[in-house]
Computed example of a mutant assay.
Amino acid sequence: MRTVEEINHRIRQGQVKVLTAEAFKHLALEVGVTQAAKAVDVVTTGTFEPMESSGAILNLGHTDPPIKIRRCQLDGVPAYAGFGAVDLYLGASQIAESSRVGEGLETEDVRERGGGHVIADLIAGKPIQLRAVGQVTDCYPRASLETTITRETINQFYLFNPRNLYQNFIVGVNGGDRLLHTYLGPLQPRLGNAVYSNPGALSPLLNDPHLQVIGIGSRIFLGGGIGYVAWEGTQHFPLQKRLPNQTPIGPAATVALIGDAKQMDPDWVRGCYFKSYGPSLMLGVGVPIPLLNEEIARYCAVQDAELVAPVMDFSIPRRVRPTFGLVSYSQLKSGQITIDGQKVRTAPLASLYRARQVAEQLKDWIAAGQFELTAAIAPLPSDRSFLSQDRWGSQVNLS
């Protein structure tokens, strides 16, 4: 029906028709997919959730005399320094080893702060204490460095996230007798609660199940700024089993994302901590779906009642856990599901309220001519299998 360039022309002319995913789904129910597809150019999706496989690349700039950093801490959080002399990678889930001088934090308080908090503070313009040890060489004679940095006093500062936007995920429950602290948060014993992390029908990749329009080079909303799909994400598994509507029944496709952190908004990038599990990063991500044809529109019309996720029992400490079957996202969002005849309350790990705000803000950017779409320069792989390490060896003690 239309091309990306035609849509961008309509954006520049102020004539584009754009709706959030929820609004488009309501329209499709009212007038049918065919008419809805004719009336709308772009659908905006969004999520705001913890994305621990995220991190930031920083270039500090050279000192005088120069230093080749080999070990480094940012506000007590170790950053990886195994490449350029003053290039660092700070992982969102890296745990702090020490606190700022004079803060007097207890060890447990320190460990509740991590890479995600430092990234969020840098984006917010806050000063960060840097301590580094260098490898002394003829061209890098400096042995150590202690200073304070901000996002304005360093060169590059951008997010590069190896795995974001799971196309679908699991529902966590606990069939055991003790409280479990997990990456989904606390799971109460004896099926006391169920936690799901994906926003369902709002989820970017569930609205494009075969990644027909989302690919390498796709422009997105990332942390309140502009970002791009850089590559397939780690654990990308497009071969996951699917329903007749082509949506996966569990964890499937993922994407790697990149974006300039200096342009991001601290309102959409927040450090967080999961008790007895570790730190992470809450991140707002929105993806526009150009309705190039009716098939894409049909996928965007999918409802929460037509999307399912597997219920997994975390009390079994194995990679492959038993399931209690599949539940729909409409059931999950109702606040209660039934497992083996027992009613179990549910809660989302993603903020559905803020996910709606992401989709709404992206819609406003497009409608105002502030955000144009990009066609993918290459598709994401459709044939990746999912490998485990079960057959490669036994446990070893590295302590």
Rank of each mutant, 00 (worst) to 15 (best):
L187D: 06
N193M: 08
G192H: 11
Y277Q: 11
Q167I: 03
R242P: 07
Q389F: 13
A230Y: 02
I377E: 14
H117L: 00
R321H: 05
Q15E: 15
L27N: 14
F83L: 12
D121F: 00
P209D: 00
T34W: 11
V171E: 10
I377T: 15
E360P: 10
H26F: 15
P127N: 05
Y299D: 11
G91K: 13
R71Q: 14
E360G: 08
H26D: 15
M282S: 10
N193C: 14
T150V: 02
D64C: 05
S98Q: 05
R391W: 14
L257E: 11
N155W: 09
Q129P: 01
Q15P: 01
R71G: 07
T34Q: 14
V133I: 14
T338I: 14
P322V: 10
Y329T: 08
G134E: 10
E152Q: 09
A359Q: 07
A194L: 05
T3H: 07
I149P: 00
G125I: 00
N168L: 03
R10H: 10
I67N: 01
G233D: 03
L74M: 10
R190W: 04
E295N: 15
L130V: 04
L292Q: 11
F221K: 02
G82R: 01
V327R: 15
A375C: 09
P288G: 13
W231N: 15
T47E: 12
I149W: 01
G217L: 02
F314W: 15
A301I: 11
T148A: 01
I214A: 06
Y228I: 03
